[in-house]
Design a protein around this nucleic acid. Structure first.
Lengths: 275, 275
DNA sequence: ATGCCTTACGTTATACGTAATTATT
DNA sequence: AATAATTACGTATAACGTAAGGCAT
């Protein structure tokens, strides 16, 4: 008795005739007919009444059907479990304190491991990243410092520098460079998904009103239509400056951040593969 | 994925090595090795760690094992259900008010339907037989009268005549014939599995002590070693009279009984086949 | 050297498709 | 005539066994 035969039995019930069932299974009708005969032989029991040019499922056939469905459900559960497993294995989870490192890592992953599903998580908390990596919930973490945590490896990855993005009409747009203090008090617009940068802005410009925008496209539109300050970095994917705005470097040391990637020691191969 | 492959997976876990599992499955070792590789391919996932010249089941393998056992258990349940069905179909249940008709019916069944399992039930109650047949719990019934019950068929089958079986040393052994009344008051020995005859004895010989014997061989031995009355019939399988005893016909009409066989109308073929 | 696993190769079995046949509507 | 099922037959796929090779203990 084979699983395929049980599927055939179910198909015959579903389709009503052997001919229709055969078509739905991409088989010829005689082939299915014989396969069902084999099943009857294996079970030592007729499953159909042969009524003229039709075939009708009998009591034994119905008994077989209920059992067949049980078995096939169990089989489907197994297939599902392995499909999940396969998806998990193809998924690479990155937990990061900032978006820019994720962009670069994603690009490398796509190149080095085509087909990999990339699952990025942004957070403003470095300890959350470390925990996720340590517990195996993330394959790779992006943090702000080299780690000494036992069982984890880390190495510097990239440096990102924050810049003001100022409307040309704004008085501060003439300056060659600015400190956070120079702009503190000015309202500014910020995209919500920026990880730890959000903390930095709030700390360094405590007197400014923060206009948080959740929607990326709305945020971009607002850049053109409002004249409040905004931020960009040298790592911004889109290297160009939005029309009507100028980039002004920020002189504070805190505006320059080096990111470190980290992973568990047993996954050292991941780092080796990516760098 | 096939059921056979799941059985092979379970066997490898059970036996520890592919070689041992192959032997237990009556396969060569390379054949099993490839079959397991096919399973891994089908599931899209390695199930074993290949450690030098051994294989060890890994986490995915254990996941597969738990599911495989579920599926195989469901398959076993199906096989068991059909084994039961097959046994039921090969079983012919006879419910009778007397043993002699069962003997004859059994002999015919063995001849007409070799391989049939014969399941006889004796009872002293005719209505119990009719109920069993009507409800489909018995394929054939043996009763004392022609039936008018709707849905049931009946026909006369055989006539049996009761005889006294008297020790040669007993005064009654000289008589050519006897009535129940002649012997009423004499203690008598009777085998317990005689169906409705038990009722008859108690009714026709109310003053006699009845010595009921459950064990057939003990009953036979007592026939030679005691000098109490006993009964036999003209239908007794063993036509000979036990040593030291004589048969004496019973004159009462009640000692002569015609039996009728009955079955459900839809099983009319059964009667036709047997007669 | 021995035990266990894998790969390679030729053979066989078995399940498929095509075609012909039967039976019912 | 048309539809549905079975039987007959040739073919191709796929699983098996044998033989050879590799890698540990």
């Amino acid at each position: 008795m084979e699983l395929e035969q049980l599927r055939q039995l179910v198909a015959v019930e579903r389709e009503g005739t052997i001919t229709a069932a055969a078509a739905s299974l991409h088989l010829t009708q005689p082939s299915l007919s014989r396969s069902l005969q084999r099943l009857e032989r294996d079970l030592g029991c007729e499953l159909f009444e042969h009524e003229g040019n039709r075939v009708r499922i009998n009591d034994a056939g119905r008994l077989a059907l209920t059992h067949a469905k049980e078995i096939l459900d169990a089989e489907q559960a197994m297939r599902d479990a392995f499909a999940d497993l396969a998806r998990k294995r193809r998924t690479f989870v990155i937990r990061s304190v900032a978006p820019a490192p994720v962009w670069r890592l994603a690009a490398r992953l796509c190149e080095e491991a085509p087909g990999t599903i990339i699952e990025p998580f942004l957070t403003d908390s470095e300890s959350e990243v470390i925990d996720a990596v340590a517990h195996g919930h993330a394959d790779l973490g992006v943090v702000l410092h080299a780690l000494m945590t036992p069982g984890l490896l880390s190495r510097p990855f990239m440096t990102e520098t924050l810049q003001f993005l100022i409307p040309e009409t704004h008085p501060l747009s003439r300056r060659k460079e600015l400190s956070f203090a120079d702009a503190d008090g000015e309202p500014f617009l910020i995209y919500s998904q920026v990880g730890f940068w959000m903390n930095l802005h709030k700390r360094e410009m405590p007197h400014s009103q923060v206009l948080v925008q959740e929607d990326r496209t709305v945020f971009t539109q607002l850049l053109s239509t409002t004249d409040v300050l905004a931020f960009t970095t040298d790592a911004s994917q889109n290297g160009s400056t939005p029309p009507g705005r100028v980039r002004v470097p920020i002189t504070d040391a805190a505006a320059r951040q080096t990111f470190f990637v980290c992973c568990r020691e047993e996954n050292a191969g991941v780092l080796a593969k990516l760098f």
